[in-house]
Design a protein around this nucleic acid. Structure first.
Length: 361
DNA sequence: AAACCGGGGGC
DNA sequence: GCCCCAGGTTT
């Protein structure tokens, strides 16, 4: 208990809000706080910053966001990853606007009920916007608590989540939850870093269990191992009279609701054209006797995801006539319109490499 | 409980 | 090449 008191006092004494100024810090508008928290889920502050600023400018109020077309929001989110966040963001904005009369929920459970809002985000919004006493438990908090209190329970286990959450709640300074929550996250982000933490200048070093026991590099503990699968995508760039076919990804897979070129997934990247063409015939996209030949020099790119390695190869094909079996979900769009659609990063890189965006002028 | 969902940066 | 990031949802 003495150790807990030391932790609380030391943290508050150390914290200087102005040391790390951020656009969403010190404000109380729940819409802007919610927006920032969704964007920052599993995302570095530096990476999410510009997205936050662009969203705030594009949608000054939650009603503006609710009124936005789906594809427009996806385009604004393009490149940030975890695209279900954008979908949930829009769904929640529409829910608040239509079902709650545009009034953002003011209770923890009300906030938690919003799509895309879990325990962390609900606690963050509740404390920052309404000064409600709920402790945030994010990656920073797991790390700080695991080290200072010497906790080796895996943070990604059920028992670990419960243990860390209970400890965080017991440490929360209930008379100033917003300040305390900001302090512990800033502390984790600037002092108690994942690697090479600044223990030499840490205000809590005299009581830190991990530092005392030389276990800084061992804590926090994560138990789950990552399983990576490798996939091979062959994208077909079907050119026809200055236009190109794209389609929206609707299957339950990565990049849901993003656009792409027609794609054949194969077991390897080094297919010859004969094998790939046969796959197109098998899918019913083209006729067996169709005289279709790709341009020489197809390009390959790789993209790394958390659980997958995506190997992509782009085949450019000039169509003299439209194929017989064009699926109904394919869209034939002018090449100059490509920049209006949200694509996976690997396709975006291909388009950048080709300089296709430059045609827009 | 485990799997899945992106992209970027640091070392 | 590996880990982590202002996590959440689905199975």
């Amino acid at each position: 208990m003495d150790q807990q008191h030391f932790f609380q006092r030391g943290l508050i004494a150390w914290y200087q809000p102005e040391d790390r100024p951020l656009p969403w810090k010190g404000i109380q508008d729940p819409y802007h706080i919610w927006l920032s928290e969704i964007i920052l889920q599993q995302t570095r502050v530096e990476q999410g910053m510009n997205y936050y600023l662009r969203f705030v400018e594009a949608y000054p109020s939650i009603r503006d966001l609710a009124a936005a077309p789906d594809d427009e929001v996806m385009k604004l989110w393009e490149g940030l990853g975890y695209y279900s966040r954008a979908r949930n963001l829009l769904a929640a904005a529409r829910y608040v606007t239509t079902e709650l009369g545009g009034v953002f929920p003011t209770t923890y459970t009300g906030i938690l009920a919003l799509k895309g809002v879990g325990a962390y985000t609900a606690a963050a919004i509740a404390s920052f916007a309404f000064n409600l006493p709920h402790a945030v438990v994010d990656g920073n908090v797991f790390r700080v608590l695991a080290r200072f209190f010497g906790i080796s329970t895996p943070q990604d286990s059920t028992a670990g989540k419960k243990e860390f959450t209970q400890l965080a709640e017991s440490l929360l300074q209930r008379d100033q939850p917003a300040l305390y929550n900001q302090a512990i996250m800033d502390f984790g982000a600037t002092v108690c870093l994942p690697r090479n933490p600044k223990c030499g200048q840490c205000p809590l070093r005299t009581e830190c269990v991990a530092l005392r026991d030389k276990r800084i590099t061992e804590l926090p503990v994560k138990s789950k191992k990552l399983i990576k699968t490798e996939r091979f995508f062959h994208y077909l760039i079907f050119n026809y009279e200055g236009k190109v076919f794209i389609q929206k990804r609707e299957e339950k897979d990565i990049w849901l609701h993003l656009y792409q070129f027609p794609v054949v997934e194969a077991a390897r990247l080094d297919l010859d054209w004969g094998a790939l063409k046969q796959a197109l015939v098998d899918k019913g996209w083209i006729e067996e006797q169709a005289e279709i030949v790709p341009r020489p020099g197809s390009k390959s790119f790789q993209q790394l995801l958390t659980h997958q390695v995506i190997n992509a190869r782009f085949w450019e094909i000039d169509l003299p006539v439209l194929p017989a079996g064009v699926p109904t979900d394919w869209q034939l769009i002018p090449r100059t319109a490509l920049s209006k659609y949200a694509f996976p990063k690997v396709i975006d890189r291909y388009l950048q490499d080709k300089g296709l965006y430059l045609e827009l002028g």
